[in-house]
Design a protein around this nucleic acid. Structure first.
Lengths: 234, 234
DNA sequence: TACAAGTATAAAGTATAACATAATAACTTT
DNA sequence: AAAGTTATTATGTTATACTTTATACTTGTA
């Protein structure tokens, strides 16, 4: 199967600017040359000559690759191939306050979707030490935490630890990155309906489930834990 | 709460190059000027003068913003603020074959996490017409589809429709984007263990659950549907 | 020989100026 | 007033010269 084609089709016809063209040309070039992580690529002027464009164009194309973590450049040493950093770019783009409400809401939903669906990863990888740590985290929460107010730092500690346990690095960084957005949505007026303060599964309850339950009971517990948020959404 | 600070802390100290600095300066500038979507920003030369750097630097900074979909530039008309396109950049970065195996595996897991956790969104937004359409999609699948071989196109049709129904645009685009990666992982040798062909919940079974079940039963059904994949992972 | 300090150099970073291109606006013509 | 033509303007592109800095090389000293 030709993944190159699939990709290009997906990405679209490189709108036409020379930089766009140079960008994909460079990627193809790296592929052909079998460049792998750590290899140094030809210097800017050489690439410029080879692709028949000015150094400026090459620089702008390289700039794009660099900002995606596909390459790393250092003076004198030149430019070397690195592992692309999927999430690194997103971080910068998540400049607070510029995403439109719909996207913010989407992200808020996405967060809950991920944490509910995470059950199997958690149970596969969790250790007793993790559970102990979680108990320590929730130790300071009052017993009727279900009814208490939202504490951002405590939220981050607890849910962040869950992502750690899941052992999926991409997922964890994704969450780290989206955190400010969660908070923002929570506090902004995007979610119209008021916050209910009924009794739902608490953090402590979730840990209990991790200790004695299974992925299925965890999913349900987490879903219930989010009941407040869901009620504000739907 | 100062989201600006949170963000900068997360992103790091702008390594030092003028372009990095110009980039954040521009963002701050837009904020201060209360620029909103659709507004045109000063032309390149003016910005260069204002920030005290050359047009080259401004151009490279603008290039970064542009590639994140934060701005759109047209000749003569100038540069206008747009809604940042979170996923657009990721698409380009997912150039097949350069992600390392760990990330690929992460993405593969992420996909299952999302589809399992998607239950509540689905039931909240699904219409009878959607269910009918899903039945039409699975109509061609043999009755014992559980045991048949993997058909990529059918997979895309079915699971893609689910994302459509979930009504979360960000989520859907995320999936669209990750699709080639799913296929790639499925076919590559990354997942060591062999593919089992036991009887698990089929596509048709999932539709039945959507028709007669609830979010909880759906999550379990989807988890079961992925049993093959999970067995290859763990 | 070993090691530190200083120097040269190569590649990326930055600046400037000039020209090309394309989209818009202004103007003419019918 | 509609259509076609021209002028203008901001980005796109090229070319060139200069600056910065990490590395490699050389030199000098113990």
């Amino acid at each position: 199967m030709n993944y190159d084609l699939i990709h290009e089709n997906l990405v679209g016809q490189e709108s036409g600017s020379l930089v766009d063209k140079a960008e994909t040309d460079l990627l193809h070039f790296f592929r052909e040359q079998q460049f792998k992580t750590g290899d140094v690529i030809p210097k800017e002027v050489e690439l410029a000559v080879q692709l028949g464009v000015s150094r400026t164009v090459i620089r702008e194309a390289l700039l794009r690759l660099r900002m995606r973590g596909m390459i790393d450049t250092k003076k004198k040493r030149g430019t070397v191939i690195t592992n692309p950093d999927l999430l690194g770019i997103l971080e910068k783009t998540l400049y607070p306050g510029i995403l439109d409400d719909e996207t913010l809401r989407d992200i808020f939903e996405l967060r809950m979707v991920m944490e509910i669906g995470m059950g199997d990863l958690l149970f596969e990888r969790i250790q007793q030490a993790d559970i102990d740590e979680l108990y320590a985290i929730v130790a300071n929460e009052p017993n009727n935490a279900e009814a208490t107010l939202f504490d951002p730092e405590q939220e981050v500690r607890f849910h962040g630890k869950l992502y750690d346990i899941a052992g999926n690095n991409t997922l964890r960084r994704f969450q780290r990155m989206l955190l400010p957005t969660f908070q923002y949505v929570h506090e902004s007026g995007i979610l119209k309906k008021p916050i209910q303060h009924k009794k739902f599964v608490s953090h402590r309850g979730l840990v209990d489930v991790l200790q004695h339950g299974n992925p299925e009971t965890f999913r349900n517990a987490m879903r219930n834990h989010f009941e407040n948020h869901f009620q504000r959404l739907f």
